[in-house]
Write a protein that binds this DNA or RNA. Structure first.
Lengths: 195, 195, 195, 195
DNA sequence: CATGAATGAGACTTCATTCAT
DNA sequence: AATGAATGAAGTCTCATTCAT
C-alpha cells in the first residue's frame, strides 16, 4: 500500500479509508492511519489539522469527484439525467467498497459540520439533482405531489440503502443492483395512474 | 433493602436517547446518561453491562415496539400491508425526534453486532416485510424484476431518508412526509408501464 | 457451604478464606464473600467493619487456634518443644489448603497493621517460641551464636516455605514434609562443629 | 523526533520500587509511579503494557541480576557454593531495602504468572541451587533424607525470613544477619547424628 | 437483624496532538 | 519537511460501603 512519495495527502486519504472501514472512525487511531500510509504519526498533522479533518478530506475528495461526473453529464431528458446522476453516485461508491462502507457509517458526521469545500460540493450535487427533478416535475415526468427536496432525499436514501444491500451480499452484481435501483428510483418519482 | 424505585432501566434508556442525540454515541459519557436519568454513574452498570449495551438496549426497545406494531397489523392487500408496515416504522421514529436522530446516526453500529434480542426483533421485522413483498410480487402488484431483499432495502432506505429530511426542515409535517413517502415507496416497487 | 444459621461470623470467615484463595485479597469482592457465605452483602458489615477486618478476622481465628495448641503443649526438652510448636504451626495450615494459601499471600498485610486480638495472639506465639529457643540456647542444645529472634524468624520462614512447597507438589505428603521440615529446622539451630 | 532521553525504562522501574514499597502494589497508582519517575502518566505505557507488567519488570530485573551473580560464582565445594548462592540472593535484596520489601510482599504475584523472562531467570536460579544441593547430597555433605526441592525451598524461605527480620530491626547489621543466616541454612541441610 | 439496590470516588488506560530533534 | 517519543486530559468501569426498607 506504499503510495507515491509525491502525494502524501492522497496517501493519507487512501489509508484513512482503509482504516476507517476496518475500525470505524471513532475506533480508528491516527497512528494507524499513519502506519497504513507509510509515514510518521506527526506527519499526518502536516497535511490535516486533526482527525476530523481527515474524514472531511475523504468526503471532500469523494464529493468533488461525484460533482465532476455529474457536471460532465449531457443535458438530456429529466428522467434519463436523474438516472445518470444517481448512477454516478452509485458508481462512485460501488467502485470502492471500503469507501462505500465509510460513507454508510460516517457520512452523517461529515454532514453535521456543514462547511468546507467538500460540503459545498455535496450541496452542489444535491442542487443539481433537485434542478433536474424540478424540470421533470414541470414537464410532467415526475410526480408534482412530492416536494422536490423530499423526493430527492427519498431516492438518494434508496440508492444509499441499495449500496448497503449490495455490500452485504454476493448474489447480485453491482451492475444488477444499479440497474434495478435506478428503475425503482425513477418509479418512485413517477406519477402513478399514469401509464 | 432498598427497593427498585420506579423503572430505572427505562429511565436510563430514555436518558440515553437524549444524550446520544446531543453528543452522539461516541461523544456521550456514561456519566451524562446517569445524570440525565437522575441516578449515580455506577447504577447504570446495574442495568447495562457497558456503554454499548445501553445503545443495544435503546434499539432493542425500539425494534420490539416496531415488531409489536407490525405483528398487530391486519392481513390485507400486499400494497396496503406494506404501506402499513413502513408507516409503522416511520411513525415509531417520527414520534420521537431524539430517537429518530439516534437511529439515523447509530443504528449501523447496532446492526454490526448482529445478535441479541433487539437484533432478532429487527430481523423479524425485515422478514415480515419481505413476506408481504413476496406476496405482492406473486399477485402481480409488485415488480417481479426486483429481488425481494433489494426492494425491501430500497424502500426501507427511502423511508429512512425521508425521516432524515423531515428532521431537517419545518415546512412539511410528519403526516405529509409520511403520506408522500409511502406513495413513493409503493411506486418504487410497482411495475411501470402498467397503468 | 451453607453454614449453621447460628454463626454467621464463622460462615463469613470460612467464606472469606475460600474467596481470598481463589481471587487474592485485593481481587476479592466483599459481595463474593457474602454469596459464598450465603448471606446478603450488607450483612457482612454487621459482623465486620470492612474488608480489611475480614482478613484480620481470618488471621485472628488462625493465630488464636495456633496459640491454643502451643499453650497446650507439655513442657519438654527445648528441642522437642520447639519441634512441637513448629509442628503445631505447620499442622494448623496444612489442615486447610485454602487457609494456607491465604496465609502465604496475605499474612504480611495482616502483620502490617500490628494491632488487634489476632496480632496479640501472633505475638504471643512468637514469644513462646523465643522462650523455648532461649532455654535451648542456655542448655547448649541450640547455637548461642544466633540471635534468638533471628533464629526464630529463620525457622519460621523455613517452615512457611516448606508449606508453600508442599502446596505446589503432589509427591510428598504433608506428614513427610512436616517431618523433614522439623528436622531441618532443628538442625538449623543446632551448633555445628559438634560434628 | 524526540529521542529517548536517558533510560526511562529504568527510571520507571526504580520509581515503581519506591512507590510499591510505600503503598503496596495494589494500593499504588500508575500515576504516582510516573510522578516518581518524572514523566507523564501515559509515558509509562510506552514502556510497560500495564501495571502488572511493571511489577514483572521489577522482578525480571531483580532475578536477572541474581542469576548473573550466581552464574558468575566459581564452582567450589557444594557447601561453599550453596552459601555463595544464598549470599548472592541475600545481598541482592539487602542492598536495596525498598526492593526487599517489595520482594517480601509482592513476589508471590510475580510467581503466579509463571512466565516471562523474569520467571525464566528465577527458575534458572532455583535450578542452579538444586544442582549444587544435589552434588552435596551425593558427596555426603548434605542430608540425603531431604528431597532436593524441599531442602532448597526451606533454606530459601529461611533466608527470605531473615531478610524480613533484618528489615524489622536495627541491632544487627546486614552482614551479621547474612553470616548467621548462611550458617543456619547450611546447618539445616547438614546431616545430624554426625554429631 | 437482614437485605441488596444504590452510591460515587477513584483507577487504569487510551489516544489525539505536540514538539524537540 | 519529517519524525515518533512524549504528553496528559478524559472516560469507562469497579467495588467497598451505605441505608431505606
Amino acid at each position: 500500500m506504499r503510495k507515491k512519495e509525491g502525494d502524501k495527502q492522497t496517501a493519507i486519504l487512501d489509508a484513512a479509508v482503509q482504516v476507517f472501514q476496518r475500525e470505524g472512525f471513532a475506533g480508528a487511531q491516527v497512528a494507524a492511519v499513519a502506519v497504513e500510509a507509510g509515514i510518521a504519526t506527526g506527519s499526518v498533522y502536516l497535511y490535516f489539522k486533526g482527525k476530523d479533518a481527515i474524514l472531511d478530506g475523504v468526503f471532500e475528495r469523494f464529493w468533488c469527484k461525484v460533482l465532476e461526473r455529474i457536471e460532465g453529464l449531457p443535458a438530456t431528458e429529466p428522467k434519463d439525467q436523474l438516472a445518470d446522476q444517481l448512477g454516478a453516485f452509485f458508481d462512485s461508491l460501488s467502485e470502492d467498497r471500503a469507501l462505500a462502507e465509510v460513507y454508510l457509517h460516517e457520512h452523517h458526521s461529515f454532514l453535521a459540520r456543514k462547511s468546507g469545500v467538500g460540503f459545498d460540493a455535496f450541496a452542489r450535487c444535491v442542487s443539481l439533482g433537485e434542478e433536474v427533478f424540478s424540470r421533470g416535475v414541470k414537464s410532467g415526468q415526475f410526480d408534482k405531489g412530492i416536494s422536490v427536496s423530499l423526493g430527492r432525499a427519498f431516492v438518494f436514501g434508496g440508492v444509499r440503502a441499495s449500496l448497503e444491500f449490495w455490500l452485504s451480499q454476493d448474489s447480485l452484481s453491482a451492475a444488477q443492483v444499479r440497474k434495478r435501483t435506478l428503475r425503482m428510483a425513477l418509479s418512485a418519482l413517477t406519477p402513478r395512474g399514469l401509464a
